[in-house]
Amino acid sequence: MRRFHWLVPFLAVGSLAFLYVPLLAIAVYSVNASRFGLTWQGFTMKWYQRLFANEQILEAAWNTLFLAGVSTIIATVLGTVLAIGLKRYPWSRRVYAMLDINLHLPVVTPEIVFAAALAVAFGLLRLVFSVFEPGMLNMVIGHVTFQVSFVALVVGARLASISTDIEEAARDLYADNAYIMRHVMLPLLKPGIVGGAMLAFTLSLDDFVISFFTAGPTSVTLPLYIYATVRRGVTPEIHALSTLALCATVILVMLSERITRKTNKE
């Protein structure tokens, strides 16, 4: 252990406090009995009970999970296959550079610009195909678009760590393409695929901007619902909901850490 100036631990702990004070405030207010205002009026669990009786919130929760689940499945398949196709085949330098730029587009484009572009595109598509009304289809398309690129980048990084020796050895040991894919490449890529899928899932759960520009009245997600509600003022149910979301985040983070630690050991 090194000795630092006292300012270092002071600033570090201060920064963490700065990150956590607001979150703690939400958790505390979620059990505050006061309906209006923020003065403490005793402990209650009634906001949590109301939460589970609120049909709108339950529907938003279902929409959020449905959107994240469907888009993650699509993006994981597309992204994995894309990474293999891009990294393991002899593209000419120029074609590769072009494909690589296309792949990075969703990462470097500011969310709000991407959202605006999607809104315009769907708006024009609507003139021809009515299925592109704001709603779940548009949201899934939007989410997959940014997820696919993150999945491909994570899987691609994993792919780069698998030396071509391994593939050659498998070939030398009489394996054909299908056998190598099934018994060598996919098992070795698994940590990357799982990691990419988890990233995609969390990105979708967290997304606000893309959803905001593509959602319809029946496809409201939790972040959209919370945003719409808090703009109207303080609501204790939202505190309860946010606290639950926070707990879910903590569990997800711990879970993903355990998984990465386990795969690192392998």
Binding site: S163, D165, E168, A169, A170, R171, D172, L173
Partner: peptide
């Protein structure tokens, strides 16, 4: 390679 009755010990060993 996968049809040749020849097997290789790689420099990196290339174990799975």
């Amino acid at each position: 390679a996968n049809e040749r009755n020849v097997n290789t010990v790689f420099q990196s060993y290339a174990l799975f």
